[in-house]
Structures are given as C-alpha cells and as structure tokens.
Design a protein around this nucleic acid. Sequence first.
DNA 1: CGAATAATCATCCTTTCGGGTGACGGAATT
DNA 2: AATTCCGTCACCCGAAAGGATGATTATTCG
Lengths: 140, 140
Amino acid sequence: MKRTILIYGIALAALVFILKYLEYRFFVRDVSLEFYIGLLAVFFTGLGIWTGLRLTRTQVITIGPEFALNEIELGRLGISKREHEVLELIAKGLSNREIADKLFVSLNTVKTHSSNLFLKLEVSRRTQAVQKAKELRLIP
Amino acid sequence: MKRTILIYGIALAALVFILKYLEYRFFVRDVSLEFYIGLLAVFFTGLGIWTGLRLTRTQVITIGPEFALNEIELGRLGISKREHEVLELIAKGLSNREIADKLFVSLNTVKTHSSNLFLKLEVSRRTQAVQKAKELRLIP
DNA sequence: CGAATAATCATCCTTTCGGGTGACGGAATT
DNA sequence: AATTCCGTCACCCGAAAGGATGATTATTCG
C-alpha cells in the first residue's frame, strides 16, 4: 500500500515535470487547458482503475502448480503472520509438538495459534484447515 | 483504511507544496494550474477506483491439471479398495467417526483401515498420509 | 497516554488419534 | 482342504489434538 502511494506520487510528479518540460522546450505556451484536463482525466482514471484492481479481491487464474498467495483472503480472515506459519507447518504434516520445536515456542502457544486458526477458517480439525487453506490459496 | 486516506491526503498536501515551490522556481505563468492538476488527479482517481470496483466482480476460474490415479503405486504399496476409500475421506478432512458413518461401518473398522494405511504409507499421522498420498497421486 | 492487537504461555478438560492385539467370516488362491 | 487376503469389529492404553479461559508482554494506533 505504501509502495502504491509512493509510485502514485512519483507518477504525478513525473507527469508534471514532463508537461512543464514540454511546455518550455517547445514554447508551447498556449497549450489549451482543455487538453491538460483531458490528458489528466484519462491518465488518472486509468491509474485509479489500476489502484482499484489492486484493492479489490483479484483472483488469479492459475494453470498449473504456480502458487500465488492470496493475501486479500488472508487479511479478510484476519490471519496473522505467526498463525500463517503454523498453518504451513500443519499442512506439512507436522504435529503440534514438532511445530513448537521448529518455531522455538511452547506447545501451548502452538495450540493457541492453531485454535485461533480453526476459528478463523471455520473448521474444527487440522485436516479440514489444510483443505480449506489450499482452496483459498493461503498455502501452496 | 482511514490511515491510508490520511496518508494519502498528507501526501497530496505535500505535493501541492512542492508544486507551489516549482511554480516560483520556474516562473510559471499560470498560477493555479498545478492546483487544478491536483484537483483533477484526486477527482479522476476516485472516479477510476469507483469504476474499477464496479467493473471487477470476482470470478474464479481454476483450470487444474486433470487427476490420473497412480494405480501402480497403489498396487505396489498394497493398498486395498476399502483403504483407499478411507484415505480419500481422510483427505477430505473427515474424522474417523464421520468416515465410519459415511461407510456404514464401525469406528473400530475405520481405525483399523487407517492404521493399516499409515503402515503402508510409512507415516504416523493422517496429515502426513494426505500429504504423501497426494505426492504419490493416490488421491486428487 | 489508553486501547487494541499480536504473540506468548498456562491450566483444565474432553475428544480424537494412533498403536497393539486378537478374532471371525467370506472370497480367492494354492 | 489349507492358506492367504480382505473386511469387519472389539478392547485397551497412551499420545495428540481440540476447546475454553485467563494472563502477560510488546508493539502499534488513535
């Protein structure tokens, strides 16, 4: 999001510079205001649509094994980084004990994370969680 | 989101200041041009985002690779029909109890099948069994 | 600063799994 | 007929997983 805004600002600034440059370079001092307005309207409408597409839940049509993490869904379900890590390890077939050791946390912590995961994914077993997470493209 | 809008506004304000600075720097004749540019940018960006949101309705078309059951591996591991059925239901995230009900057999039977499965697949947990079975293309 | 969130850990209790063993009838094979 | 395999079921026990709740700390946000 911050990157988007940054790109946006830079694009805006660059556009102004280009316009100014052209204006002075070619002494086109009498470029009509309507022309500017039209140009800007088109440009920023396009940019706006692009941003809109960024913001919306854009489902990527995947053909084959390429995995694109569905961050929108992740955010929608409110799954945190740590929970996502646990989810990945669950999908790998690790037990809670093994996950705890791998993440250097206690067994209880892993159980808490997984419980929260089940709530957010609306499932009650880890196998279901894995299945649903794959459907939602939260994990490869 | 509110924060985003706030940052956005601040960025825009900063941009206007920059533009004002440039205005004096390059002795721009039209004083209010940049202001109009900024205004137009905001307006048409909003319009673009609105249009983008309007236009994009999510449609998920997943074209996955068709599943070909690996019967050779099935035979090699000596997995019976019934065991394979249980394996599929395990992969669907069902509990042993649910599998038993679905197959009209007792819980103990399902447990026997799953235990035999784990031996044949050389795993110790159902999540691992699902993982391995997918790798070996025993299930979709 | 106060509120909210994320991450951590704990305790208690119930359910589910997994492992081991044994048994029995039916079908196919030898 | 004897053997082997499959499917079925049972009992036992310990380990793992799941559910509920509360507490602490750190960071972030308003």
